[in-house]
C-alpha cells in the first residue's frame, strides 16, 4: 500500500505501519488462529462438533430468536423514531437520549434486571403468570433480551433518514389527493425501507452474538433455551476446545455474511435512487 496521492503531510509510513501492526496483533492474528484451529480439525470432526443436535437447537434459538427480535425492533424502532422526529412533547430530548441506553448499560446489568422483571415474581412476570405466560427461562425471555439489545440499531438508523425526508414529498402527495395512510405507505415507507432493512440486519447481527443480557433470562436449558454463544462458553468450560472452535467458526461466518449483506444493502440503496 502506497500513498497514491503524494502528500506534504508527514507521518504516512509510521502511522500506517503502527495501524497494521496493532490491527494484526489484536484482531487479525487471533481471528486467524481460530480459523486455523478449525481447519486443523478435519472435516468430519468439524461437522460433528458444529452440527450436533444440541448445537443445532442452539443455532435455531439464536437465529430464530434474533430474527423475531429484529422484526419486533423494526416495528417498535420505527414507531419510536417516528415519534421522536415528528412530534413535539415534553421530555422528548430525554427519551431521545434514553434510546442509547442498551449501548451504554453493561450487558450483565441488563441481563439481571430483565430477569428480575420477567421472573415469575417480578413486576411483569407477576402480571403474566395468571395468564399462563412464562417469559423468564423460556425462549420468549431470550427474545425479550434480544429486543432490548437491538432497539437502538433500528431507531438510530431510521432517525436520520426520517429527519432528512423532504416535507414537500408529503405535501405534493396530499395535494394530489392521497390520504395520510396512503402518504405513509406509498411515499414515506418506500423511502424508509432501506434504512429499516439495514436496521433489521444490524439488530439481527447484534442479537445473534449477544451473550450477557441473554444468559440470565434464558434459563439455559440445553435444547430449549440455550443460545449458541453460551454453548461456546460451556464447551470451553469442559475443555472441549474443538467443539467451541467449531461453533465459533459457524457463528463468525454468519456474522461476516451479515456484514456483507449490510454493505451490499447500502450500496444497493445508493445505486437505486442516485444512479445517473
Amino acid at each position: 500500500m502506497l500513498a497514491t496521492k503524494s502528500s506534504v503531510i508527514p507521518g504516512f509510513g509510521p502511522t500506517l505501519g503502527y495501524t497494521l501492526f496493532y490491527l494484526g496483533l489484536i484482531v487479525l492474528i487471533p481471528l486467524a488462529a481460530l480459523f486455523f484451529r478449525a481447519a486443523g480439525m478435519g472435516w468430519e470432526q468439524f461437522v460433528q462438533a458444529a452440527f450436533a443436535p444440541r448445537v443445532l437447537a442452539a443455532y435455531r434459538l439464536s437465529f430464530g430468536g434474533a430474527f423475531i427480535a429484529a422484526a419486533i425492533n423494526v416495528v417498535a424502532g420505527l414507531l419510536v423514531a417516528w415519534v421522536l422526529v415528528r412530534y413535539e412533547f415534553p421530555g422528548r430530548k430525554l427519551f431521545d437520549a434514553m434510546v442509547d441506553l442498551p449501548f451504554a448499560l453493561p450487558t450483565a446489568v441488563a441481563g439481571i434486571a430483565l430477569t428480575a422483571i420477567y421472573a415469575p415474581n417480578g413486576v411483569i412476570g407477576q402480571l403474566l403468570r395468571p395468564l399462563g405466560i412464562k417469559v423468564a427461562f423460556t425462549p420468549i425471555g431470550v427474545v425479550i433480551a434480544m429486543v432490548f439489545i437491538g432497539m437502538p440499531f433500528v431507531v438510530r438508523t431510521v432517525q436520520p433518514v426520517l429527519q432528512d425526508l423532504e416535507l414537500e414529498h408529503e405535501e405534493v402527495a396530499a395535494s394530489l389527493g392521497a390520504n395520510r395512510l396512503q402518504v405513509f405507505c406509498l411515499v414515506i415507507l418506500p423511502n424508509l425501507l432501506p434504512a429499516l432493512v439495514t436496521g433489521f440486519a444490524l439488530a439481527f447481527a447484534r442479537a445473534l452474538g449477544e451473550y450477557g443480557s441473554v444468559i440470565f433470562i434464558a434459563g439455559n436449558m440445553p435444547g430449549i433455551s440455550e443460545i449458541a454463544p453460551l454453548l461456546i462458553v460451556t464447551k470451553l468450560e469442559q475443555y472441549d476446545y474443538a467443539g467451541a472452535t467449531a461453533i465459533a467458526v459457524v457463528m463468525l461466518v454468519a456474522a461476516f455474511l451479515m456484514l456483507l449483506v449490510i454493505n451490499t444493502l447500502q450500496k444497493w440503496r445508493q445505486s437505486r435512487f442516485t444512479a445517473n
Binding site: E166, E168, H169, E171, V172, A173, A174, S175, L176, G177, A178, N179, L186, V187, P190, N191, R272, F273
Partner: peptide, 27 residues
C-alpha cells in the same frame, strides 16, 4: 390540500425518487 384539487409544483419538483416517471404522474 387533498380535497382542494389543486396542482402544486414545488421549486425542487419533489418527485418521488422511488417511482418511475410513469408512476409519479399516475400517483
Amino acid at each position: 390540500a387533498r380535497d382542494r384539487c389543486v396542482g402544486f409544483v414545488f421549486q425542487h419538483y419533489a418527485l418521488f425518487r422511488h417511482m418511475t416517471v410513469f408512476d409519479n404522474v399516475s400517483f
